[in-house]
Amino acid sequence: MHKMHNTSMGRVFDVFNHISLLLLGLSTFIPFVYVIAASFATEAEIAARPFFLVPETITLAAYEYIFSTNTFIRSIGVSVLVTVLGTVVSLLLTMTMAYPLSRHHLLGRNLILNLVVFTMVFNGGMIPTYMVVRSLGLLDSLWALILPVAINPFYLIIVKSFFQNLPTELEEAARIDGCSDMGVFWRIVIPLSKPVIATFTLFYAVFYWNDFFNALLYISDNAKWPVQLLLQQLMMVANVDFGEMDVMLQDPPEESLKMAVVVVATIPILIFYPFLQKHFAKGILLGSVKG
């Protein structure tokens, strides 16, 4: 009786759940479809129709412009390089730092954690950070886009608490087998942390991909501009500084071109997600604890 009630309730819930999530998914995706559609539309159509999902006349003009030179392809290459390299560096630094901080008995642990949290709220600002980057000789190097932002304290704290919640049985077993802390970290903790790694690979990769501000400050050589900087340029010039744009020398960018650059700059990181998804969808601890 009780159970039946539950299952029928459960069924109602299931239907409701499917429908609401489907609506949510559509509401988040349809605007992006508009962006894609607008990137293939003519300027006249974008001006005439407020919203559409399929353009009346399909034109490739915006994409022809983007790919008429190697500028955008090169900038995507820069973005990919920075993203891959940056994510590897960030993950290594974050994991190696988070693990010791997750051990309660570590002397000075609280002090270090406090110092880390402090930096999340307090920072010296743009100018002193620039001075440090410059004195390290990193200006105009892609490392300037990585090293100054290598550890996100926010992520560090979360990874630390993930480590804290790992079951201790395996570690103890390894220690009895004669593993040092180093051994425990590489052989037990890291393999157990696949979902964490997958999650923070995603977080760091998206961060590096979306960042344009550091490139703006540290990179003068335009051959090293990441694609987000070009996107930012196209989007902002005609908007925030409205009325200030130097229109006498440059026409404002066409709407379809802006949309096409959004598509080109977003698709690579979007398709990255489903690949990582299956990793953090896996049950993690179960198998290893049992085995």
Binding site: L92, L93, T94, T96, M97, Y99, P100, L101, R103, H105, L106, L107, I112, I151, L156, S180, D181, M182, F185
Partner: peptide
């Protein structure tokens, strides 16, 4: 905890 401190250094 020497190895733990070692891991801390880069961060």
């Amino acid at each position: 905890d020497k190895w733990l401190y070692f891991l801390l250094i880069p961060g």
